[in-house]
Design a protein around this nucleic acid. Structure first.
Lengths: 154, 154
DNA sequence: CTTGATGCAAAATATTTGCATGCTC
DNA sequence: GAGCATGCAAATATTTTGCATCAAG
């Protein structure tokens, strides 16, 4: 499971910004750095809180987080995942593979990877002349722990 | 690609309702029937509009749609998918497989299925002692049409 | 200096909830 | 009849936007 370093992420960010004749800002980089530190799936509000704890991030506003996340998502730095009542959550896209099992009882997210599935995805995409930029897979079900506690259901 | 009939869906709904000592209502059934007719991915507002066009659905409220969708999702009748700025969309879960390719340029959703991926998902879940109830897979990228129109990008 | 980005607050959306009343069972 | 579900409106929550100002290039 190869991961990118924060440095390579930031430099990729700067490249993408430059390519589009936009301006680089410390806020956007702080938001990315904050997401890098707190690996996982978070709401924009949570990401804001993390970013504000970063050096120099005291007064970042929520609007900036939304703007940054939308940009990151468009550029493929971030993926969003939504499940049930939990709303939309964002995660830095730093892993080679990107798949989740989500427990519908407790909301726990288990990550996994499969090269075989990856290859089959590429094969399916090729059939439809579709160029893959990113992918996400969610398996919904009952995790090990909840199977124990939740016998009589269904 | 086997699909359930609307009748089997409604009867499954009634069973789930009864099991939980809830009460069956025409609204919930109308919402399900409306989703069945308009196969695809829709926002709660869109689903409301469809349901209101159903016989006897004139004055269904948006709150009822949200309540129904939350119930349907909890019970596995419906899956939600969220991508980029498009917000959360719901789809009746009537197909055996449930996978999507989403074009990040035009938002088009291409459906596909793969038994092999299905089997691998089961294998992965087994490794983690996870009981699959449902699954969803999204491949993000550029569709055939947008590849033509959009040469110079990236 | 030009123009994109930010922070703030307001606006627009989306989603949930309280409550009186209607319907199932 | 008892109690869940509904519709409506109000309350929240979420996300976007306008605008004055800041700051990158």
């Amino acid at each position: 499971m190869k991961e990118r370093s924060i440095d390579s992420l930031i430099s990729r960010l700067r490249i993408r910004v430059k390519e589009q004749n936009l301006k680089n800002t410390s806020q956007r980089e702080l938001i990315m750095a904050a997401m890098y530190k707190h690996k996982g799936h978070f709401t924009p509000e949570e990401i804001l809180a993390f970013a504000q704890k970063e050096e120099g991030g005291k007064n970042i506003g929520i609007a900036t987080v939304y703007r940054a996340l939308n940009f990151f998502e468009k550029e493929g730095f971030v993926v969003s995942i939504s499940f049930g009542a939990d709303g939309k959550k964002y995660e830095l896209n730093i892993k080679e593979h990107h798949d989740h099992m989500i427990c519908t009882e407790c909301g726990k997210i288990i990550e996994f990877e499969s090269d075989e599935i990856e290859k089959l995805q590429e094969a399916e995409a090729a059939k439809k002349d579709f160029v893959i930029k990113d992918h996400a897979m969610q398996i919904y079900g009952i995790c090990k722990d909840c199977q124990k506690t939740n016998k009589g259901k269904n």
